[in-house]
Design a protein around this nucleic acid. Structure first.
Length: 484
RNA sequence: CGGGGUGUGGCGCAGCCUGGUAGCGCGCUCCGUUCGGGUCGGAGAGGUCCCCAGUUCAAAUCUGGGCACCCCGACCA
């Protein structure tokens, strides 16, 4: 089906997604609000209100449609655009089990697609953001460019998006423990590097603090000094947290500036990374130019523990202890199990076998054709140009006709065309070298060269783009020769 | 919004620091040559040097202002 692009804003108001900053908004001449959707959950769920009975379930609807996204900064060629085509499917089921089945079917379908187009992808847990729903998964295709970082174990048993990846960090190198925290003057020190150097300790023996605002209250996030805070994990651990605290808020709550913050003496909630559960660490003293040695969770402050750190290359795999590597990747597909997230606010219900009214349970399954192509190009090229996988090659056979043999070349092309191949015929009046170079650049799987010398023998040359292997094939056996 | 960069024949760039006839490669036109991996030679056409103002005998070049585009960051279903 073909769904509309222009969408009444009320639908998005109802699900809460109107708040998303990158939604394209517009008004008609009477001032009514519309949006250009980034996905069509609201649209399909609105129409799914027509579903009355469990007997009409399950349903699976899909379309290819232009999507709009008011990007802060479009970039990356085909990867991040204000307008792009997406193939997305939406399932509706009567219960969790049905939803799981629909979800699995769509996942399998996508995996078969990626397999068929010869795209190396990893199926990984994704962050769902404000999309809602219980879980979502990404298909990530490693590539030279891309905006996702894929964390993979060297042994191949673990793969995850950096934003949600778990990892085992290197062990901390801690100095002798103290009986109680001890103040130490650290004038002018505002970085972990400076702190570790001044105190003559390893960065892993320090902690750093980041205050965030959650529903008008300050919360202190605490991680080990050598780590980076994962914002995704932080906001997962602190539902409702919205932004880093401002300098003024920090000053009034802690009585000190950004470089000297710590958990001791802070009135609000402290969320500490798991790495701080055991041992003593240096922390800010909440007094400019001072730190505390020997600060121990559980003894000196009572934090809630959570996984807050961003994994680093070289960390250990949570499954097997193997070394974790990073690869940049393109997100080529994203599938969601969102349950009643849309059907509940939009009132899309049905009557089940037992006579009760229930919300439809939904999933959505998106795949970006342009991104898939971009990823294929990244994974299938060499220094001369593209090397198309057969299933997505624009043509199966590229017939290069050398000048003066146009008629014979056309016959060869017709022969192949009649045999069912998609044929590209290059009969331009150019030097052979230029045509070969162009054929390499375009990257059709097979090249057939029609030249005078081979033609005298009643043959042509058939060349495989991927391997560069070339073979002389008699004209009578051309079709088999190409098919091989 | 912050940081950086770029604007010069159709395309890609050099020249700018240190002001003085605007240059290179590719492409294009014509003649010849060559013809299974981007031939070779010759002749030629083509430019408000992003815009405005200023300094100067003289500005692509220096100064000020503006515009456009690109990259990085914030953001990101």
């Amino acid at each position: 089906m073909l769904m509309p692009v222009l969408t009444p804003a009320e639908l998005w108001e109802a699900t809460g997604r109107l708040a998303i900053s990158e939604i394209f908004r517009l008004k008609d001449r009477t001032g009514r609000d519309f949006i250009l959707p980034v996905t069509h959950e609201e649209t399909v769920t609105f129409h799914a209100r027509e579903i009355q009975s469990y007997k009409q379930l399950p349903q699976l609807w899909y379309h290819f449609q232009t999507k709009g996204r008011d990007e802060l900064r479009p970039r990356g060629g085909l990867l991040r655009l204000r307008e792009f085509v997406m193939k997305d499917a939406y399932s509706f089921d009567r219960d969790e089990e049905g939803l799981r089945t629909s979800f699995e079917k769509n996942r399998e379908a996508y995996e078969r697609i990626f397999e068929r187009v010869e795209l190396e992808t990893y199926y990984v847990q994704a962050e769902s953001g404000i999309m809602g729903g219980k879980f979502s998964f990404d298909f990530l295709a490693p590539s030279g460019s891309g905006e996702n970082t894929l964390v993979v174990c060297e042994t191949g048993d673990y793969a995850a998006d950096l934003e949600v990846a778990r990892a085992i960090p290197r062990a901390a190198e801690l100095p002798e423990p103290l009986d109680a925290p001890e103040e130490v003057e650290t004038p002018g020190v505002t970085t972990i590097e400076g702190l570790a150097e001044l105190l003559g300790i390893d960065a892993t023996a320090t902690s750093k603090a980041m205050p965030v605002v959650k529903e008008d209250a300050l919360v202190l996030a605490l991680i080990r000094g050598d780590d980076r805070l994962s914002e995704t994990k932080l906001y997962d651990a602190l539902p409702g947290a919205s932004r880093p605290a401002t300098d003024e808020e920090i000053r009034s709550a802690f009585g000190a500036g950004g470089g000297s913050l710590g958990p001791i003496g802070f009135e609000g909630e402290v969320v500490a990374d798991e790495t701080l559960r055991e041992g003593q660490f240096v922390a800010g003293a909440n007094r400019d130019g001072w730190h505390l040695r020997g600060v121990q969770a559980g003894r000196d402050y009572e934090p809630r523990f959570a996984d807050l750190r961003e994994p680093r290359e070289g960390d250990r795999c949570p499954e097997c202890g193997g070394e974790l590597r990073f690869r940049t990747a393109i997100e080529v597909g994203h599938i969601f199990n969102f349950g009643a997230f849309y059907s509940a606010p939009l009132g899309a219900t049905f009557v089940d076998e037992d006579g009760t009214e229930k919300p439809l349970l939904g999933g959505s399954y998106g795949i970006g054709p342009a991104r898939v192509l971009a990823a294929i190009v990244e994974q299938h090229h060499d220094e001369d140009g593209l090397v198309w996988p057969r299933s997505v090659a624009p043509y199966d056979v590229h017939v290069v006709v050398l000048s003066g043999l146009e008629e014979q070349g056309e016959r060869v092309a017709e022969l192949l065309d009649e045999a069912g191949f998609d044929v590209l015929l290059d009969d331009r009046d150019l030097r052979p070298g230029e045509k070969f170079a162009d054929a390499d650049l375009l990257g059709c799987p097979t090249r057939v060269t029609v030249g005078r010398k081979t033609l005298e023998d009643g043959a042509v040359d058939v060349r495989d783009r991927a391997t560069g292997g070339e073979q002389r094939v008699e004209l009578e056996r051309l079709v088999e020769g190409v098919r091989r």
